[in-house]
């Protein structure tokens, strides 16, 4: 029907980390995981992973010791809010700036 010749530009995109560019630069606070409190890290088995589930950007890995891709993490703090053991602390980015 010739539809392929139309709507050649839309902002439809595959889901995945980094779909909105390098959003890590937006971050004001950085999530830091305390593995001593993190349930899967502590138990050494697949469990909890609420941070992975709730992350709106899909940048937290589902590993026993979850990793956060700082290139895309916007620092929204949802993971810290959802973590049932308060293992995630939001730390000001200024803390990571070298003097």
């Amino acid at each position: 029907m010739g539809q392929d010749l139309f709507a050649i530009m839309t902002s439809n995109a595959e889901g995945g980390e980094g779909d909105a560019g390098n959003t890590g630069s937006w971050r004001v606070e950085r999530p830091v995981i305390n593995m001593a409190l993190c349930t899967p890290a502590k138990k050494q088995k697949a469990s909890c992973h609420l941070c992975w589930l709730y992350c709106p950007d899909g940048v937290i890995s589902k590993d026993l010791e979850p990793e956060i891709i700082m290139e895309y993490c916007k620092g929204c703090g949802i993971c810290a809010e959802e973590c049932p053991t308060n293992a995630i602390e939001m730390v000001a980015e200024s803390e990571f700036v070298e003097e």
């Binding site: 709507a7 530009m9 779909d19």
Partner: peptide, 29 residues
């Protein structure tokens, strides 16, 4: 798919690293 996800004033790379159209280009289209 992400439908009508946020666009930047300038073009950006999609998750495959290809240039994705940005707002003004989409509107021109």
């Amino acid at each position: 798919e992400n439908l009508n996800s946020v666009t930047m004033p300038d073009t950006r790379k999609d998750i495959r690293g290809d240039a994705a159209p940005c707002y003004m280009d989409i509107r021109y289209n």
